[in-house]
Write a protein that binds this DNA or RNA. Structure first.
Lengths: 184, 184
DNA sequence: AGAAACATACCGCGCGGTCGGTTTCTTTTC
DNA sequence: GAAAAGAAACCGACCGCGCGGTATGTTTCT
């Protein structure tokens, strides 16, 4: 109640920090660096503290995955709210979301493909995509749009690999071109 | 010399098997399943035998990576030998190589993105790409072609994730469309 | 005979995970 | 309102196991 100084513990804040640190570690120093100890240290907690929030390391990873998908989904929803509807609206939102992920979190907490190759993660992603495609079937079923989505994925991958800038197109121009391909 | 029954040991064959098994394991059961013991077992060798061929696990992984890039490079070279030259010849070869990788080795030994996210691997790939782009600068520098490459990468990624078939376009049609985009 | 190609047995370390205690917050009771 | 009671949040020490790696012996080829 008192707004003097909020010295109360914030468990959900710690939980967030743990998830973020795990993603950060994975992308910065590789998957092998994601140990329970390292994540706990980075989050300023002890190992015991971490296991208070997550029953196992696997559950931690699951949470990281879910978090990434949730963020992505929210970004798409936000764009859809503006763009409205019409041919390729979902695809355009997909492009914007993917590219902005890469832009604002350059290989930081944006994602972890490494995790995506883990069998558990594949299902989470394909389930999400299937649900989305079903929803936007009327506007985004054209094969041309599928190809544009692949291109966005490729850009995302390049970003994850931290592909040197001299091998890549300017991001704004890239976005423009992709959106143009997904319009009309 | 004797062609009676070739009972001689074939060390380079064992080496190949080890590399293949490592890649196989990574893609089938995730990166965490790639342990020295598991690779050795899968290859029908003991752990000591494995360490006779590779001084460390890291060198094994390096070899897997190099092998993938070599295969990819060879596939491109083969296509280039037929396609000849002209606008987008490298990009078309890139498409064919990427797609055939995915087709003939469906998530088997085709590759391991997981490994690609490891810092070591990033350099290997970007070095290769830079060298290639420099060589084909005259024909494959157009921004449209870069986008098509991204699309091919996206397809490759989808394959790695073993994305269900109901979410994907037919591969032959996909190839046709991509090549068309990289022509003229 | 000598070297390469393995197998066998072993080691130390760091990993994921557990357990009991301690602190911090929330709720109950008077 | 304070004090007691309870639960939640977290720490610190510990454990067993499986990992990457080694040293030495044994077989197989040249």
């Amino acid at each position: 109640m008192s707004e003097a100084y909020e010295r109360k513990k914030q468990p959900e804040l710690v939980r967030r920090t743990l998830i973020d640190c795990a993603a950060h570690l994975a992308i910065e120093r590789g998957l092998q660096a994601v140990t329970v100890q390292a994540v706990a240290d980075a989050a300023g907690v002890t190992k015991g503290g971490l296991f208070h929030h997550f029953p196992s390391k696997e559950k931690l990873i699951d949470a990281v995955l879910k978090d990434q998908i949730d963020k992505f989904d929210a970004a798409i929803e936000a764009t859809l709210a503006q763009d409205g509807q019409g041919y390729g609206c979902f695809t355009r939102a997909y492009i914007v979301a993917t590219l902005s992920m890469a832009e604002f979190a350059p290989a930081l907490e944006s994602t972890c493909v490494a995790l995506l190759t883990e069998p558990v993660a594949r299902k989470q992603w394909s389930d999400w995509l299937r649900a989305r495609l079903a929803r936007h079937h009327a506007t985004d079923a054209a094969p041309e749009l599928e190809i544009v989505r692949y291109a966005a994925d490729g850009v995302w991958l390049a970003d994850l690999q931290q592909l040197p800038a001299d091998l890549r197109m300017d991001r704004d121009e890239l976005r423009k071109r992709l959106i143009a391909m997904a319009t009309k």
